[in-house]
C-alpha cells in the first residue's frame, strides 16, 4: 500500500541526489537507493569545470536495496541514464506496481530501436502512470539556487501534480505537459546534438556552421516526432531548444566531450570504447536515426552525424559535404 508524500529515488548520480534533496526539502518522506556501493553522502557534480558538491538532505533515508526504497512510495523517481534504465527495470520492474506514479529522468533512447525510457518502464513493469522529467537544468546550478525550469511530461494530471508537490519551489519551476512522446524525443535530440556541437568544436567549424547544423538536426528530430504523434511546439520549448542550448553550450558535457574528441581526429570507435556505456548521445543519435527510418522521414543531417560519430566515417569530409552541399528542400 502506498502512502501520500512518500517518495523513492532510485539512482546513484547527482540527479538522484538532487531529486532526493528537492523532495525532502518540500516535506516528502524520501528513501534514496544510490546503487550497489554504499551510498555516500557527498557526490561530485560538475559545473563548468569546477566541481560542486551535492549533499543529500538529512531527512533522506538511504537504502541498500531498491526494494527497500520502494516500500510504500507513491511517487518513484528513476534517476539513471537511458542506457542504464533497462538494467534497473529488470531489477525493480516487478515492484513498480500500477498504484505507483513512476517518473524517470533519463534523457535519451535505447539504441537503434529508438525505444523511449517510458516505453522501457511500461514494458518491464505494470506501472501505467508514468512521466518524464526533462528540461534545461544543471544539477550544480539548481543546488546553488539559480532559477530553474524543469519539464514534467505525463499523460496523467495526477503525475504532474504529484511531481509539482515534490519538486516545485520558489527557485524551481515545474512546467507540465501531456506530450510525453514529444518531451522524450526532444530531450533525446538535445542530448544527441550536444555531441554534434562537440564535433563542430573539434573540427573547428565555426559558430555559424555549428548553429546551422544544430538547427537542421533539431528540425529533423521535430519532423520525426510529429510524424509519430508528438507536438512540434514541444521541440521548440524548454525540453527541446532550451535543453539543446545547455548541451551544446556546456563544454564539460559528456556528449560534447565525446564529439569534440572525434572531431579532433580520434577514431570514433576508440573514443566510444573509452567512454563506455555512458555515451547517451550515441544511443540517442542511433535511436533517432532508427525512428526516422521507421517513420519514413528523411533525416540527412542526423544520418551524417551518425556516419561521423558511429560508423567511423571521415568526420571532416562528411560534415563538409553536409554543410556545403546544395540545400535539399
Amino acid at each position: 500500500m502506498t502512502s501520500p508524500g512518500s517518495v523513492a529515488v532510485l539512482g546513484p548520480g547527482p540527479v538522484g541526489a538532487l531529486l532526493a534533496r528537492l523532495a525532502s526539502t518540500n516535506g516528502c518522506r524520501v528513501a534514496w537507493w544510490a546503487g550497489e556501493r554504499p551510498p555516500e553522502v557527498e557526490r561530485p557534480a560538475r559545473k563548468r569545470g569546477a566541481r560542486g558538491a551535492v549533499r543529500a538532505c538529512e531527512g533522506v533515508v538511504s537504502t541498500l536495496q531498491p526494494e527497500e526504497a520502494l516500500a510504500d512510495a507513491e511517487l518513484v523517481f528513476l534517476a539513471v541514464p537511458a542506457g542504464e534504465l533497462p538494467g534497473l527495470m529488470l531489477r525493480v520492474g516487478a515492484g513498480l506496481t500500477p498504484d505507483r506514479l513512476v517518473v524517470h529522468a533519463a534523457k535519451g533512447l535505447d539504441g537503434p530501436g529508438g525505444r523511449r525510457p517510458s516505453e522501457m518502464i511500461e514494458l518491464e513493469s505494470a506501472a501505467r502512470r508514468v512521466g518524464a522529467l526533462a528540461g534545461p537544468y544543471l544539477v550544480a546550478e539548481v543546488l546553488e539556487g539559480y532559477a530553474t525550469t524543469l519539464v514534467l511530461a505525463s499523460r496523467f494530471d495526477e503525475v504532474q501534480s504529484a511531481v509539482r508537490e515534490a519538486l516545485a519551489s520558489e527557485g524551481v519551476r515545474v512546467q507540465a505537459t501531456h506530450d510525453l512522446l514529444g518531451v522524450e524525443l526532444a530531450s533525446a535530440a538535445a542530448v544527441a546534438l550536444g555531441a554534434a556541437a562537440g564535433l563542430c568544436a573539434g573540427l573547428k567549424l565555426g559558430v555559424g556552421a555549428r548553429a546551422a547544423l544544430l538547427a537542421r538536426g533539431l528540425a529533423e528530430a521535430t519532423r520525426v516526432g510529429t510524424a509519430l504523434g508528438a507536438k512540434a511546439e514541444t521541440f521548440g520549448g524548454p525540453a527541446g531548444v532550451a535543453d539543446l542550448l545547455v548541451t551544446a553550450g556546456d563544454p564539460d558535457g559528456l556528449g560534447f566531450r565525446f564529439g569534440r574528441r572525434v572531431g579532433a581526429g580520434e577514431p570514433a570507435a576508440k573514443v566510444r570504447a573509452e567512454v563506455g556505456e555512458r555515451t547517451e548521445a550515441v544511443r540517442a543519435l542511433e535511436g533517432l536515426r532508427g525512428l526516422a527510418g521507421r517513420a519514413r522521414i528523411p533525416a540527412p543531417t542526423l544520418g551524417t552525424l551518425c556516419e561521423a560519430l558511429l560508423d567511423g566515417a571521415d568526420a571532416a569530409a562528411v560534415l563538409d559535404r553536409c554543410l556545403r552541399g546544395p540545400a535539399q528542400d
Binding site: 502506498t2 502512502s3 506496481t97 500500477p98 498504484d99 505494470a126 501505467r128 495526477e158
Partner: peptide
C-alpha cells in the same frame, strides 16, 4: 497484477 491498483489514490 491487481487491477485495483490502477485506480487507487492514497
Amino acid at each position: 497484477v491487481d487491477p485495483r491498483q490502477f485506480v487507487l489514490r492514497h
